[in-house]
Structure formats: structure tokens, C-alpha cells
Design a protein around this nucleic acid. Structure first.
Length: 255
DNA sequence: ATGGTAGACGATCTA
């Protein structure tokens, strides 16, 4: 079973890319971020046409998350518990009653020290508390999304440049690591321990052509899901298409 | 300190 996460930067403007990728890659579960549309405007019929189900939690213009799966989806959260948030950044569901997934779109943070940066850290605190509360459950659980933070130097094309900047500053890395410290695995690194791999390339400065990216999209797995992992990778193909999202899918295969 | 690009939306805001 293949599970992927993808920040599509508007599902409506990326629908052709999504459908092509869906047909080629044949995922069983897809976790989307930055859908940028209300549930009413979500192109559900096209996405469901090939035998998929889906749920979404979206708003006008910004943010928005969704879960697409071949199996039966039962929604259990559309926001982080105990975190007042008008922005649509979290959705969680049970698939076929046997495993759990969540799609998370962590705030970008704008600039270190800004109000948006503070909001990002508070979001991480709420995410940490929620994932902690799920630890110890027997159900396999995979939380995929745009975490807007890179784990380590090898996840950033120029670590020195980003050391004190948003996406790689010390407080952000500490916040991201609190999640793995709970016992959730950074799935990609189980299979690719040392390669320089990225999931996002800025639209500006020809970053894609120069392969100047960051790995800020992650799949985190609880121990029960980690034990079932078979493979993982980053599918760079859609990033090379015309008018792409600035992010590309990150995937894993589980038993 | 600024600008570089993209998307939503209809002037800027967010990333």
C-alpha cells in the first residue's frame, strides 16, 4: 500500500497534474496540503472518478488540507485539539478502520521572530501534544504533510545560508525534533539515511534547475506503522512538469 | 534591505 503527501499549491490550478500523477503513481492514500479552496469548490468528482474517496477541510484562497484514499475514510479531526485556529491546516481520519492518517500543513512562519513565526511554534506545540496523546495506541498512524522545517544539514542545499532563517532556524528544528523524539520515525531516512534529498524548490532564482531545494515535506510514522514500512522515496517527476507546484510528492510503502 | 516567482483574487497577502 502506497501513501504519499503532496503540497499541490492550489488543487484547482494543479488538477491536471494531480490526475496524471494519480494515474501514473497509483497511490492508495494521498495527503494534500495548500488546496486553497473551500470544500464546495474542491474538484472531488474528478479525483474520485478512478475509485477513490476523499475528505477535505478547506478555506478560500489559503491553506486547506485533504485526504484521498481507495479505502473507506472516517474523519476524526479537522483541527488540532485544544488549538483555536481559523486556518485549515489539519485533517485526520481512519482508513478501513485499521489504520490512521493525518494531513498537516504547518504555518510557514514568514520571518524568524515575527508574529507568524510565533504562531508556527505554537502550532508545533499543539501538534506535539496531539501526537503525544496518540502515542501508545495500537493503530498504525502516519502523519504526512508540509512541516515547513528541514531536519538536518543534508536536507538543505545551503545549510549555512539557512541556519538562522525560517525553515531551518534552531527553534523550528527543535520543534520538529520534538515529534520524532516522541517515537515517530522520519520515514524517508529509514531508507535513505545519507542522501541529499529535497521535496521543495523555490519558484524563484531558478532553484529547480540548480537543484537548490529543501526537504520540508515529511511522513512521520508511529512505531506500529514504522514496523510495516517496506520502502520510501521522493517522486521528483511532477516538479519537472510545466507550471508545477513548488513541492513534489513524498511517499512510502507499507504492508 | 530588497527582489526574485506563483496563486488567489481583484488590492495585496501568503508562501
Amino acid at each position: 500500500m502506497k501513501i504519499a503527501t503532496w503540497n499541490v499549491n492550489s488543487i484547482r490550478s494543479r488538477l491536471d497534474h494531480f490526475l496524471k500523477w494519480q494515474a501514473d503513481f497509483k497511490p492508495d492514500v494521498v495527503l494534500l496540503q495548500e488546496t486553497k479552496c473551500t470544500n464546495d469548490n474542491f474538484p472531488s468528482l474528478e479525483i474520485e472518478a478512478e475509485g477513490y474517496n476523499m475528505i477535505a477541510h478547506g478555506q478560500k484562497s489559503y491553506n486547506g488540507v485533504a485526504i484521498i484514499a481507495r479505502g473507506n475514510i472516517v474523519e476524526n479531526h479537522t483541527s488540532l485539539p485544544d488549538f483555536e485556529d481559523e486556518q485549515c491546516r489539519y485533517i485526520e481520519a481512519t482508513i478501513d478502520g485499521v489504520f490512521r492518517v493525518a494531513s498537516v500543513y504547518v504555518p510557514n512562519g514568514s520571518e524568524v521572530g515575527s508574529d507568524k513565526f510565533d504562531y508556527k511554534l505554537r502550532f508545533y506545540d499543539a501538534l506535539h501534544k496531539h501526537l503525544r496523546s496518540r502515542m501508545g495506541e495500537d493503530t498504525p498512524f502516519i502523519v504526512g504533510g508540509d512541516y515547513n522545517v528541514a531536519f538536518d544539514d543534508k536536507d538543505v542545499y545551503d545549510p549555512a545560508k539557512y541556519r538562522k532563517r525560517v525553515l531551518f532556524s534552531r527553534p523550528e528544528r527543535q520543534a520538529l525534533h520534538t515529534l520524532t523524539n516522541l517515537g515517530y520515525a522520519d520515514v524517508l531516512r529509514i531508507f535513505e539515511p545519507s542522501a541529499h534529498l529535497y521535496s521543495w524548490w523555490d519558484y524563484r532564482e531558478g532553484s529547480w534547475a540548480k537543484d537548490q531545494g529543501l526537504r520540508i515535506d515529511h511522513l512521520l510514522a508511529n512505531p506500529q506503522a514504522t514496523d510495516k514500512l517496506k520502502s520510501a522515496g521522493i517522486d521528483k517527476t511532477p516538479r519537472g512538469w510545466e507550471k508545477p507546484s513548488d513541492h513534489t510528492p513524498v511517499w512510502c510503502e507499507v504492508e
